[in-house]
Design a protein around this nucleic acid. Structure first.
Length: 766
DNA sequence: AGCACGCCGACT
DNA sequence: GTCGGCGTGCTC
């Protein structure tokens, strides 16, 4: 609805009757680290307009500088404890209708408390930038005909051109722009100006999508639903659906963990569940890791549901805005997207699905550092709807929640078509010679065999570049070349003849001698995908191979092109980083090789074993999806490590049985909660001093059950010339940590250029 | 986070 | 004598 003079047209006569005794008050929060709700008087002209969930402009501070805030509530009377003489008035309403509904207001308030930020900051993170700046829309002047003129149209005596223009405008069901009317009435703007001056036409200012200004609007949300037969559910899928039915059909909160091995048909279960809630006129949100948001995935949803909204990071502001509005208007029933799609403004949400629930990309690494899975569970709880978490290798937090009965675990242990899980063979690198670099003799032989059999091969190596480090050969120096701005070893990229920092992307030419001691003949070591590619090309000159990592996939669409070429069989050997391992299934892949399974194992992170297990287990599921059996070869220096051993036997529960006691012994998640306080700044002593003071503040507020570690430099102690220290808080349950943070929050102002970040439930400890 | 107020060093 | 350094405290 449009606003006229800040009022709804329907309420045009309301103010004469209004009693303006005290007037309503609006509770406003700001996108600033101020954890308070400010009260502003709502002036009479805005009384019928201001509603919770809108952005408003209000004067703030001594200079009454206009600031944008979010209205979170309307009070009939002045809230107690504020001086009425100091209350200011709301200036302006920015959104009509409101951007945020009641459920999302509640959700963001919870986020603020849980993730230790202000309500305003949480709200600001939920609304996309394109929506805030109304990208893709513009304000235009539109012409309408007043009713009395319309009625007396015949009796008016007007010059021909004006009469013609007026008639055209009367026949249009929509208000027209001046330009449109000129075109339709085949006249210049003169007659129209005359009509306006005579008061025969009115002008209204409206904000509309840009494409509405030139008549033809394109179908925004793709709709290529070519019906494909819906496969009948397997016995196991049927059983899982049956278990979820009461929740899907009643309005109740329930969290289901669909623990299904790769190839067990989890997606089909998601689709069936979505159909159930759609049939009741409800909407569903599907969250997938950004990397899985491929055309292939999207097509699958689109074929089944027709009109869906896809939210991914490459949308323009205008596209995102359009999708958001379309969702809020109830025009789309299925929303598929990455992390931030958890905030999609669905009106009657009926279901949330999170695929690959364990993926760390669901954690946002900027304030507010929320975990989309945990926010989604909270949202489901607030909206009283079911939520489905799907994974072959659930996060241990999720597993534990299932064990404790908070989530319902629904196992799916059979692969569709009764295909066996591929056999995984471990190659102990401590007993192997690696003549060329990355490929052991058994892996090379297996590749020869697979290719000879007309199968395809995937090789996974989680490191970009040619050499992963450069070191000075002089034993007295022996320094690894590091980035100038970061505490990180530089990687040599042979193709570009550059040393590159993978943390800040800084590049520099390779030096001819050690920058520290001038020794010549620097030693290059470690294997990255670039070097593996070279090795494969040399060993298999007759088979087309392709490298896929973020270096080769720079142009948009290249990802899809390579995958299409691999699918068609044109490419025989696909090698690359994580990005080849995610959610893709290629029936003709008969061999998967993990070049180095240990890359994550020795990280200084309590989740190192879990990450290693997940990586190997996921990759192992990528083969044997067609009719032919698959083989998986995993190269490792630690074949006896339980993470690798269990992954090779597809034994999730075995891994859990080894890992959980370790976690319990150290009180790590899922047996305790962590909060990480990260201080960073350009001056190391200043950061260190601040963090030490912060520790004292925390100790002074001491809470039973909260233990503190540090402060200590973070494992990567410097990034982009900012020194980093962290302090870790641990507790059995989240509550004491929340209380502690809230208690000390007012008294921790970092000095000068130091910044403090609070990471609740950290996933990344670097 | 901004932004104003406030109390101490090197300049016309 | 002043311009300005950024420490401290507030924002309905």
């Amino acid at each position: 609805m449009s606003l006229v003079n800040g009022k709804r047209q329907a309420d045009w006569f309301a103010d004469e009757a209004g009693t303006d005794a005290d007037g309503p008050y609006a509770g406003i929060v700001f996108n600033r680290p101020i954890d308070q709700i400010f009260s502003y008087r709502v002036p009479a002209r805005l009384e019928e307009v201001v509603r919770p969930g809108q952005r408003v402009r209000v004067p703030l501070g001594r200079g009454n500088k206009p600031a944008v805030g979010y209205c979170v509530r309307i009070d009939a009377e002045a809230p107690s404890g504020i001086d009425p003489s100091r209350v200011k008035e709301v200036l302006d309403v920015l959104d009509d209708p409101p951007l945020i509904n009641a459920a999302m207001l509640e959700l963001t308030r919870w986020m603020a408390g849980y993730y230790a930020c202000s309500w305003g900051q949480a709200l600001d993170a939920v609304v996309p930038a394109g929506v805030k700046n109304q990208a893709g829309t513009r304000v235009g002047t539109f012409l309408t005909v007043p009713d009395e003129i319309r009625k007396s149209l015949e009796t008016l005596e007007l010059p021909t051109k004006q009469a013609e223009a007026l008639a055209v405008l009367c026949r249009s069901d929509e208000p027209l722009t001046i330009a449109d009317l000129c075109r339709l009435a085949k006249c210049a703007s003169g007659p129209i100006t005359a009509l306006r001056q005579r008061g025969y036409v009115n002008t209204v200012r409206r904000r509309l999508p840009k494409d509405a200004f030139n008549a033809s609007s394109s179908a925004a949300l793709g709709d290529d639903s070519d019906a494909k037969p819906i496969p009948a559910l397997t016995v196991e899928q049927t059983a899982v659906m049956a278990a979820m039915t009461p929740a899907l059909e009643g309005d109740e909160f329930a969290t289901f963990l669909i623990h299904g091995v790769t190839g067990s048909g989890k997606t089909e279960v998601y689709l069936s569940a979505i159909e159930r809630v759609m049939a009741r006129g409800r909407e569903a949100i599907v969250l997938v890791p950004e990397i899985s948001l491929t055309p292939q995935t999207i097509r699958r949803f689109r074929r089944r549901f027709g009109k869906i909204a896809v939210l991914h990071s490459h949308l323009s502001d205008a596209e995102r805005h359009r999708h958001w509005r379309s969702i809020a208007a109830g025009e789309v029933q299925v929303i598929v997207g990455a992390r931030s799609a958890v905030f999609a403004p669905a009106r009657r949400l009926g279901l949330i699905v999170i695929d690959e629930e364990h993926e760390s990309t669901f954690k946002q690494e900027t304030t507010p550092r929320y975990h989309a899975r945990d926010v989604a569970v909270k949202r489901a709880q607030l909206e009283r709807i079911p939520i489905l978490l799907g994974s072959a290798t659930p996060a241990l937090e999720t597993w534990r929640n299932a064990e404790l009965g908070r989530y319902v675990r629904l196992p799916m242990m059979e692969r569709v078509g009764a295909r066996p899980m591929p056999k995984v063979e471990l190659i102990d690198l401590s007993h192997e010679r690696l003549p060329l670099g990355g490929l052991s003799e058994p892996l090379r032989q297996a590749m020869i065999a697979a290719l000879k059999d007309d199968g395809q091969v995937m090789l996974l190596l989680n490191r970009r570049g040619f050499h992963t480090f450069v070191i000075c050969p002089n034993p007295r120096c022996n320094q690894v070349l590091k980035c100038h701005a970061c505490d990180v070893a530089l990687t040599y990229h042979k193709g570009r003849r550059l040393l590159i920092c993978h943390t800040c992307d800084a590049e520099r030419p390779r030096p001819s001698a050690c920058p520290n001691c001038q020794a010549p003949n620097l030693h290059y070591g470690g294997i990255g995908t670039e070097r593996l590619e070279r090795e494969v090309e040399m060993a298999f000159p007759d088979s087309v191979s392709r490298r896929m990592d973020s270096d080769t996939m720079r142009t948009p669409g290249s990802h899809e092109q390579v995958l299409a070429a691999f699918r068609s069989g044109e490419i025989k050997i696909l090698l690359g980083t994580q990005m080849i391992a995610k959610g893709l299934d290629f029936p003709n892949v008969t061999l998967v090789g993990v070049v180095n399974a240990d890359t994550a194992l020795h990280m200084p992170d309590f989740r190192a074993a879990e990450r290693t297990f997940q990586l190997v287990a996921q990759v192992a599921g990528r083969t044997g999806r067609g009719d032919r059996p698959g083989r998986v070869l995993v190269q490792t220096f630690a074949p006896d490590h339980y993470a690798i051993d269990c992954a090779s036997r597809h034994d999730y529960e075995g891994f859990v049985a080894c890992e959980l006691p370790e976690r319990q012994r150290f009180g790590m998640p899922p047996f305790g909660r962590l909060v990480r306080l990260i201080g960073r700044g350009p001056d190391e002593p200043q950061v260190r001093t601040f963090m030490n003071e912060l520790l004292e503040t925390l100790k002074a507020a001491a809470l039973p059950g909260v233990t503190m570690h540090g402060p200590a430099p973070t494992p990567i102690s410097k990034i982009r010339n900012l020194y980093r220290y962290h302090l870790r808080l641990r507790s059995e349950s989240p509550r004491p940590l929340q209380t502690l943070l809230q208690a000390v929050a007012p008294s921790i102002a970092p000095p000068g250029e130091v910044e403090l970040a609070i990471d609740v439930d950290p996933v990344n400890l670097l």
